[in-house]
Amino acid sequence: MSNPLSRFAGWIGDWAGQGEVADGTEILFRMQVSSSVEGNALCFHMESWVGQMQLLHGLRLILAPCPDGTLQCMGFSTRFGMVNLTPTPDDEDVLALAGPATGGMQISFSLIQQEENTLIATGMARPQDAPPGFAASGGTHGILRRVAPWRPPGS
């Protein structure tokens, strides 16, 4: 995997957990992180569910280096449309992204590694023309833990 992505390579795999959205609705959260574009990109596929079968929000992101070596992120949100996000400076164990969506919203999304197998995911959206101090709504917050595939006992 190319260098700028290497600090996130340890996140490759399946993650699941619970969270809630701004109105307090509890959600189930699943995320799959995989290598993409011949190891030149990481794909983050996220789905949040209400109840057992209702997809509340789907987000699929491709994080990859530009030819100048800087990381950029493109993706699609079932709620906000196409998104183009830029990593914002943060700690080594944090992926923080922000940028516009074609639906007119400004999106911010972050993954914070809390422990080796625990990630905290947060997402927020506000109108792109919102005045300073605007209280963003529609936030999502979840705690994800690495999901190990089932293995036969003793293996």
């Binding site: 993409s36 699929r60 491709i62 990859a64 993706g75 699609f76 196409m82 998104v83 183009n84 074609t102």
Partner: peptide
């Protein structure tokens, strides 16, 4: 890789990354 979706006007939009 490219991501295709429909805009409100029914036309396609593609977010594209080529190394």
């Amino acid at each position: 890789t490219g991501l295709f979706a429909l805009k409100h006007d029914g036309r396609l939009i593609e977010n594209l990354y080529v190394g």
